[in-house]
Amino acid sequence: MIRFAGVSKRFPGAARPAVDAVDLTIAEGETCALIGPSGCGKSTTLRMVNRLVEPDAGTIHLADADVARIDPIRLRRGIGYVLQGVGLFPHRSVAGNIATVPGLLGWPKARIAERVDAMLDLVGLDPAEFRDRRPDALSGGQRQRVGVARALAADPPVLLMDEPFGAVDPVARARLQVEIGAILKRLRKTVILVTHDLDEAVRMGDRLVLMRAGRIVQADTPDGLLARPADAFVADFVGPDRALRRLAGLTAGALAGPGPISGAPAIAHDASARDALALMLATGAEHLTVTGPDGPSGLTLAAIRAASAPA
């Protein structure tokens, strides 16, 4: 659990606080996405967790520990950190990058080597193919996967992600968001995600926290924020197409019923409901067969319409 209590930060010379009396509790195993316009305080809020920025007032607790009372180096070694552009060490191999924190913690070499391979498997990279590569021999998506593997290598309970997919091309970005989000949920990590991309927040976040001028305007589930904006600012931020954005946060499998439907186009169970709607529009179909680990099921256009209807 992460708990902010009355946390504020004003940088020298600034006319107003970057973060202004923030109260926020993030449950264990929850992914909390901080969103909002540029300069709203979301990255500053994240960086105060691992003391890259020190608050002027208030407290931040990890579990029952006040982070201000923890040595910054020890604190950071116990928190995974993924940032835009990844920040891999260019002179180290993929294995060397992933091994960074376990090495600093004094793990035995055999344990580190085993962990490196396990992390590469976890993020979908073949250890035999990738462990000895240098970062400049990787695609943007591959570098981002290695960055996540490095952040998770020492098995930290908390992961901070600051615009993690901003440097990845749009084709790879959505797949990475879904795959990495699923990994983090499976591992039960407590995650703070900072992003300017509302679709990314909807795909990955269990809860969205919209900030403006250093304050929290609305904290809600993705569906709650999109369906019930708290005020005109929130409604304007989520945009007039919020019904389609709601579908991006739902999977085809979650909306499917008994099936399969004979002759219908097929879609994977973990594809978004928005992708399912796009497939229907492209093919003219009103039904899809949803493929998944428990067998095929059926998805109808009516079910998608119902899911996107105003609350």
Results as ranks from 00 to 15, higher is better:
P170Y: 13
T100P: 00
T190L: 08
L247S: 12
P310V: 02
A273L: 08
A99I: 06
A252D: 04
Y81L: 13
A95T: 11
W107R: 13
D132G: 15
I70N: 01
I216Y: 07
T300M: 02
R245Q: 12
I216V: 15
V7G: 01
A15C: 02
G257S: 14
P12T: 09
D132L: 14
G141K: 05
G147L: 05
I60D: 04
A33N: 04
S139Y: 08
P240H: 14
Q144R: 09
A15H: 09
A307I: 10
G292P: 04
D275W: 00
M211R: 10
S8F: 05
G298M: 04
A306F: 07
F89C: 06
D169K: 14
V19W: 04
R16V: 13
R92G: 00
F233A: 06
L244C: 03
R69I: 07
R145I: 01
R131N: 12
P55Y: 07
D155W: 10
D126I: 02
L301K: 13
V49N: 02
R16T: 14
L34M: 05
T291A: 10
A306G: 07
G6V: 04
A306W: 05
V116A: 04
L250G: 13
L225Q: 05
P310S: 09
I98W: 05
V22S: 10
A282Y: 00
P72M: 08
T251Y: 01
I183P: 03
V194K: 00
F130R: 08
A63N: 15
P37M: 07
D220T: 07
D64T: 14
A282Q: 14
A118N: 07
L104R: 13
A149S: 11
I70W: 06
G166H: 10
L122V: 00
V238G: 06
